[in-house]
Amino acid sequence: MNTIRNYLESMFANLPNTPDVIRAKCELGQMMEDKYNELISEGKSDNEAVARVISEFGNLDELGDALGIRDFLNKNQNEQRQIRQVSAEEAEQYLEDRAHFSLLSGLGTFFAIICPCGVILAGTSVHASRTLMAIGVFFLLGLIAACITLHAYSSLRMSSWNFLKLEPCSIDYGTAGMINDLKRSTHSSMVLQRTISVLLFCTCYIPLVFLHLMVGTSAADGAGVVILLFMAALAVLILTVSASREKGYRILLSLGGMHFSRQSDSTGEVVYDRPAVRVVMSVFWPTVTCLYLIISFLTFAWYISWIIWPVAAVVENLIKAIFGIRKEEIQ
């Protein structure tokens, strides 16, 4: 019921406080309350009842003549036309596209992480030969090409949604409610995904250590590294997909006005006004990944090279603090 009251308040927030307007608000509030109570007594859930009442409320435009505020509404409408309305179908399509293309780019990252596998296997194999190494290198180059293609393709396809970030957009109340429900219902599966990927990260060294201690041949070490890379890659893939889904909800909900964005942490979003910094930051983590892999493979100092990750995180936060601007400060 509070949701309905807030909705009504927000609809009337910008209208002048004439007696006619106040009376209309009371009457409409009464009708909505009656309808809500009846829906509840029919056994509908709170969410369902609220959604029904709000979707059947109608358009404030119709009250223009009844309240003598036609001029006011017209003026307001001209201002509002600048704001792009995102419909429920568009929102759903956006979430679907996001899921689809984050999976594709996640696969790209997956390939990037496992690309040295061929070379490792060829290098450590007992039958090591030039042919085998050449196949390994081909494998590596092919996977890198696939990675770049997947990333480029999915970011190109997602760029049609850039208007969500660049233009002032808004979603209506019902859509925001729907997304909020969706977000809540997928919450547990996201926690599960995150747990699985953290577990994979934590355990990916175990096969390598195990193989090294139990078998000890270079071929076994190679196989251990390959398993490690596969597990890490899988963890990154799961994490990418689930983080992207969550970010999709957050982006959409942040358009929904005050009622829903409050609980989302949109404050974390940072943008950069210098183009050079923006370019560097957009490839920050892939670069760090590459550095980590290159350094580790060149030096084989796996026991210490992980230090790159915390250092990178510190560097990222430093750059954010120095060059970054919080999104709200711009708006």
Binding site: A24, E27, Q30, M31, D34, E62, L63, D65
Partner: peptide, 28 residues
């Protein structure tokens, strides 16, 4: 208000659901 809106809905077997704003502007 609400009784009228409900009667319209039941009498038309949910074919016509009048919006609250429509109803109110008709009253005024």
């Amino acid at each position: 208000g609400y009784e009228i809106s409900r009667k319209i809905r039941t009498r038309t077997a949910d074919a016509y659901i009048i919006k609250e704003t429509t109803l109110y502007s008709a009253f005024t």
